[in-house]
């Protein structure tokens, strides 16, 4: 349970980190909070030749609240985001409370979680439900990727060699009804299924719907079919269309249960999250 040897670099700027990653021989990895990477290294599932620790890059640690968007630096810990965003976007705070335990959230970072691209990522589902975009810097400069184009395949984010995630931009919702529900074997474990629901409601009718699913396939994913089914419905009673999520998910068999069980869970978490959104004052 000890990581294999690697070369360690601790740059103090994004530019320096990008340069180190671009010039590295072999397998270089970015170390953010390390709450996923370090256990993978301890199991020797990954053995990078070099770690570029971005923990000392001050510019990644900012939370900027503009008039229309909130920008969370990639180096912001889950715990800081949970506490800072609670009053502004409660969906984020409630979703993050399901992410591991406080000791994990104190160290793990927004950018690390997004770049790790675990299908059970709370940040992934939240970013999808909130129509967020992810900023990335690499040898070719900066670019911004919508959350619904960022998660390409199993643990595979849209990052080119040498690119690092620098921040998450969340549009400030003017008014929203929201729900977040996840089911795990034990508190703090990886979710078997979860749903983040963001509804724009006018006169009791759902005008816009965005639903992010975790544990529903090889990536965090958007439930387009469910979103379409919800749009135009009365908020009260909307939970009854939750089974539309069947067309959106494609869960995998694993040691926790067969795919059909997790398909059923996806329906359950959506139903509960929609009901939560409807019942919130």
């Amino acid at each position: 349970m000890k990581p294999a040897a690697f070369v360690y670099e601790r740059p103090s700027s994004i530019a320096e980190a990008v340069q180190l990653l671009s010039e590295a021989d072999g397998e270089a990895k970015v170390l953010a909070g390390g709450q996923s990477l370090v256990p993978l290294m301890a199991f020797r599932l990954v053995s990078p030749s070099m770690l570029v620790d971005i923990g000392a890059i001050a510019e990644l640690g900012d939370i900027d609240s503009g008039p229309d968007t909130i920008r969370i630096g990639a180096g912001v810990t889950h715990r800081r985001a949970e506490l800072a965003l609670g009053p502004v976007i409660p969906l984020v705070a409630v979703g993050l409370r399901e992410l591991g335990h406080v000791a994990i959230r104190n160290v793990g970072t927004v950018g690390g979680s997004l770049a790790h691209a675990d299908p059970a990522s709370e940040w992934g589902a939240l970013a999808l439900a909130l129509d967020a975009s992810i900023s990335v810097t690499g040898p070719a400069g900066e670019r911004s990727v919508g959350a619904d184009r960022f998660f390409l395949d199993w643990m595979q984010p849209d990052l080119m060699p040498g690119e690092i995630v620098t921040g998450l931009h969340i549009p400030k919702p003017s008014s929203m009804r929201w729900g977040f529900v996840e089911i795990a074997r034990r508190r703090g474990d990886f979710a078997l299924a979860g749903a983040a629901v963001n509804l724009g409601v006018a006169d009791g009718v759902i005008a816009t719907a965005r639903v992010g699913i975790l544990g529903g396939g090889v990536t965090p994913l958007r439930a387009h079919t469910l979103e379409a089914a919800l749009t135009g419905m009365d908020l009260v009673g909307a939970a009854e269309v939750a089974e539309a999520v069947d067309a959106d998910v494609d869960p995998l068999d694993d040691q926790h249960g067969p795919a059909r069980y997790k398909r059923r869970l996806a329906r359950v978490v959506c139903e509960r999250a929609i009901r939560q959104a409807a019942e919130a004052a």
Binding site: L31, Q35, V38, A103, V107
Partner: peptide, 14 residues
């Protein structure tokens, strides 16, 4: 703040 010392590299505790 609480942290798992098995999941933090000593170097990151600089």
């Amino acid at each position: 703040h609480s942290a798992r010392s098995c999941l933090m590299l000593a170097a990151a505790a600089q």
